[in-house]
């Protein structure tokens, strides 16, 4: 083989490999989604939303208490995490721009973004569950808030930085104080982007399991009391999947499909939006 033929061959070989790796990645996405639909779709009926979890060995049942618990914990987590995330994002993009403090906060937030979620669960166990004497929905919400915080912080900063400085200067020239410039001009211009960040955080925490294992724990019964152990979908899926009963497995698949549809749906919407915004 001469030099040209060899170069052409290496090129063709590697590019084929590149196409194959892409197909490899897409194949797993398709496989997982297909399995979820094949196993979970049958269970996705009305009784899933109207009946509570079945006890060991009992027939039928649904996931009503787990779905309601998950909604409550996720909502509380976002309500705790979003204000801190948005305010610190404002600090990074406005007051602290270019300072070492802002750089440190951004670095720490990036670390928290990828920190092992199980460690955050242990942390919340130590600061809330152990001293207050019991597992609770609130502890789960705090753990999720810590995970949501860096996602919201990052998007808020990015979105506020997209607002041109000329708008800030124009508002300042009209005599508006800094806080008014930020709230009424910059944040308003970046409003939809910030909201997208919050939705992205919802998608991130809705399926989190590890931080809930020793904070919210689980509850077989319907409960709206956030100060008690609370049923939630991810931990229920974990327990049911590990359990020995067939109807538990079916419910775990139905719950998995439900979570995946919600999380992927939120992701597709927010990604389409963010991409439009950045261009």
């Amino acid at each position: 083989m001469n030099l040209y033929a060899r170069r052409k061959f290496i090129n063709a070989f590697n590019l084929t490999a590149s196409v194959l790796t892409t197909l490899f990645g897409l194949f797993f996405l398709a496989w997982i989604l297909w399995v979820l639909f094949a196993r979970g779709f049958a269970g996705l009926d009305l009784s899933l939303f109207t009946q509570d979890m079945p006890g060991p060995g009992s027939e039928g049942g649904g996931l009503r208490n787990a779905i309601v618990g998950s909604l409550l914990i996720t909502l509380a987590g976002i309500l705790l995490g979003a204000p801190v995330g948005i305010l610190s994002g404002i600090y990074l993009s406005e007051y602290g721009r270019g300072t070492w403090l802002a750089a440190t906060v951004r670095f720490v937030s990036d670390i928290l973004l990828s920190a092992p979620s199980i460690v955050i669960g242990v942390f919340v166990y130590a600061i809330m569950v152990a001293p207050l004497g019991g597992f609770s929905g609130w502890a789960g919400a705090v753990a999720l808030a810590i995970i949501a915080l860096p996602v919201i912080l990052r998007t808020t900063e990015d979105m506020m930085l997209l607002v041109p400085d000329t708008m800030r200067e124009a508002a300042a020239a009209l005599g508006a104080p800094r806080w008014k410039v930020i709230l009424s001009v910059v944040l308003r211009a970046a409003r939809s982007g910030v909201l997208t960040g919050v939705l992205l955080a919802v998608a991130r925490i809705a399926g989190e399991t590890a931080p809930l294992l020793f904070t919210a724990l689980n509850n077989q019964f319907f409960s709206l009391d956030m100060s008690k152990p609370m049923a939630n979908l991810p931990v229920t899926i974990f327990n049911f999947a590990m359990g020995p009963y067939d109807n538990w497995h079916d419910l775990a698949w139905a719950g998995s499909l439900l979570i995946t549809l919600v999380v992927l749906g939120l992701n597709v919407i927010t990604r389409a939006f963010l991409r439009g915004k950045k261009q």
């Binding site: 990645g25 897409l26 399991t209 991810p234 998995s256 995946t260 999380v263």
Partner: peptide, 16 residues
């Protein structure tokens, strides 16, 4: 599509 792989919750990977 590739990024959606990252969005799938880890418990789903566990089940699968």
């Amino acid at each position: 599509a590739i990024e959606l792989l990252a969005a799938i919750p880890s418990i789903i990977y566990g089940m699968w």
